[in-house]
Structures are given as structure tokens and as C-alpha cells.
Amino acid sequence: MATTACFIIVSRNDIPIYEAEVGSAVKREDAAHLHQFILHAAQDIVQDLAWTTSAMFLKAIDRFNDLVVSVYIILNPLYLPGSRIASSHFDTKVRALARKYL
């Protein structure tokens, strides 16, 4: 099975600040959109769930068809709300890790 994943970092105020489509599957634009749509919708679940658990890793909290959503809830005290992650180094690292584990 071809693995495909979409990795998005969302800041508070629901602003996506980093997006990466990773995985070995052939990239289809529709699919990429679907991934983002699913992640966007999953936030409704996350925002409720985050208050009920102390865990930072919420595994498989939502799904649509075969696509499963897992979430890390982390906090960066140095983050300026709204600013986007534009570091190419970070992007490279994320993609390298994706190749390694996916």
C-alpha cells in the first residue's frame, strides 16, 4: 500500500503555518486538498479532546475513509502568533524524516 501523509502545523487562531505533503504515493492535487480538508475538520475533535487528556500525542483521533488523523499538541512560548514557518532547513528535515519512517 502506498503510504501518503499530510503534515500540517497549525498555530492558535487556526492558522496553518506549515504544510507538507509527504509519502511515497503519487501526488494528486485532489488528494492533497482532501488531506487538508480532513485535517482542518479534525480540529473540532482536537479542540475538545485536548482538554480531556494530559497526553500531548493524540493518536488516531479522527478518520475519514482510510485516512487517519493523529495530533501532537505542543506549545512554543517563543512563537509569535500568526507567523509562518518558512525555514527551508526545517522543510528539508521534515521530508527527510518522512522518507525514513513512512
Binding site: 487562531n13 487556526d14 492558522i15 496553518p16 486538498h33 487538508q36 480538508f37 482542518h40 500568526g82
Partner: peptide, 18 residues
């Protein structure tokens, strides 16, 4: 800044365009 951020919250531009 925060109130400006709140103006632009939920800006999933890809989804919005779709």
C-alpha cells in the same frame, strides 16, 4: 497584533481556494 491575527485566523488558503 493579536487582534490582527484574529482577523486572519483560519486562513487555510488551499482549502479556501478549493
Amino acid at each position: 497584533h493579536q487582534s490582527i491575527v484574529s482577523l486572519f485566523e483560519c486562513q487555510w488558503s488551499t482549502l479556501q481556494m478549493v
